[in-house]
């Protein structure tokens, strides 16, 4: 009985993910006003030919700033976890 319920739940989940995926119209998005704007004005406003770089570094510079911050935080965390504890460096309570 239990495995039938499990199988039914799995089937429902599979259908819930597959039906929207298969009915999507790839390469033909519903809303393209922002894409059209970037493609039309990106080159003359920023001077870069690569529209992806234009969006990443100019139109959405804050996104790249956040990415750089994430990388800095990752390095700090790795350095914190993997630092070697010397005897004299151990934290001492007052």
């Amino acid at each position: 009985m239990k495995q039938y319920i499990k199988a039914a739940v799995l089937l429902v989940l599979l259908a819930a993910f597959l039906v929207p995926t298969l009915s999507l119209d790839f390469g033909n998005p519903a809303e393209t006003s922002l894409d059209d704007y970037f493609i039309r004005y990106g080159q003359e406003q920023t001077g870069g030919n690569n529209i992806v770089a234009d969006v990443l570094m100019d139109f959405r510079g804050f996104d790249t700033l956040g990415e750089a911050t994430v990388l800095l935080t990752a390095v700090l965390a790795v350095g914190l976890v993997f630092r070697r504890l010397h005897k004299e460096e151990e934290y001492e309570y007052e």
Partner: peptide, 24 residues
Amino acid sequence: NTGGVIPIMNIAVGIEVLGALSLI
């Protein structure tokens, strides 16, 4: 010779990422 600040920021991010990933 185009792009304004985009090449400068590309080089800056490149230097940062090469240091960070090697450091990890």
